[in-house]
Amino acid sequence: MDFRHNPHILHVEFNPINDFLEDNETNSTAGERNSLTCVQILIPQELFLALGLISLVENILVVLAIIKNRNLHSPMYYFICCLAVSDMLVSVSNVVETIFMLLNDYGLLDVHPGMLRYLDNVIDVMICSSVVSSLSFLCTIAADRYITIFYALRYHSIMTTQRAVTIIVLVWLASITSSILFILYHTDNAVIVCLVTFFCTTLVFNAVLYMHMFVLAHVHSRRIVVFHKSRRPSTSMKGAITLTILLGVFILCWGPFFLHLILILTCPANPTCNCFFRNFNLFLILIICNSLIDPLIYAYRSQELRKTLQELVLCSWCFGV
């Protein structure tokens, strides 16, 4: 279970990668000896736990705020709520695993190896579900903003609450099912290929959608400025900017992890690649940071959500006092 102390084993035990690395342990060791200048950043488990707890609290507040405020009961915020739940999966899995690791390090826990394997599989499913669902909801939100901008008059007839709920259910079913299949067929490198392909496909989809969205929305905004003599950006444009920031943060935080997967397939025994592998814990911290940063973006870009979050925090503080 103590994956963070072993640079050859992934913390989030994507089993095909572990098996592959174990089969090439000799080559990896030789690669390390030939790359003495590699810098390995050691990250304490307490930092994982602290960031995971902060992220968990933040995303819970976002979900509660959207549930509480009726003004936020719209398809876009339903999708954002689901994105927050996806981030919570990362936080929960990280907190649970870190607690087990700390208890094990201090000799306070004696768990059967079979139980650890079962826990690893559950954590794998949670992490994998988070990846697939996060990318899926980013695409869904992008599509929702696209409809808002270019089909504004028909938006409420196109994106009804019933359709939004159906999309949410389908995304979660697909995410959980694919994650379970990934774990069941962990010995096949096709699992990594599927994850990387899905990541690249969703990025291309979002990039094309956003480029078209911004070009035409910019033209539309200029017409509004000329006609109404107003320089305030439209709500749709603000929403598109917010989601572009979310996508950018996601790429920055998850990119190193997917690069890690690509290098596992392309150059597992290369000394330079092994240098990269040794800092896997740093990539995990970035993933947790993504879960931590997303709620801050929601709060900063949405005045309504920010106000509701402030009310929740103040009520919790007063109740605690």
Rank of each mutant, 00 (worst) to 15 (best):
C273G: 06
T201H: 10
A50I: 15
Y118T: 11
N59C: 04
I262L: 09
I245R: 05
P295H: 10
F276E: 09
S130I: 01
W254F: 10
N270G: 03
T308I: 08
A143C: 03
C81K: 08
A269M: 08
V321M: 13
C318G: 10
F319V: 11
D144P: 06
I287Y: 03
N121A: 09
P75H: 02
L259T: 06
P7M: 14
V193I: 13
F214T: 00
K238W: 02
R223N: 06
H218Y: 14
T197C: 11
A207D: 09
I183Q: 13
M115W: 07
F137R: 01
S234L: 05
I123T: 01
L246T: 13
S93I: 07
I9Q: 07
M213Y: 07
G114H: 01
F198Q: 04
P75T: 04
V131L: 15
P7H: 09
V249Y: 11
N281A: 06
V85T: 08
L21W: 13
T242E: 03
L42V: 14
A164S: 01
A152I: 09
S236G: 05
V85R: 12
I149R: 13
Y106C: 13
V215I: 15
T235C: 05
V122C: 11
T166Q: 10
P256G: 07
A207L: 12
I67E: 03
V321F: 14
I141Q: 02
G248R: 04
A152D: 13
D144W: 01
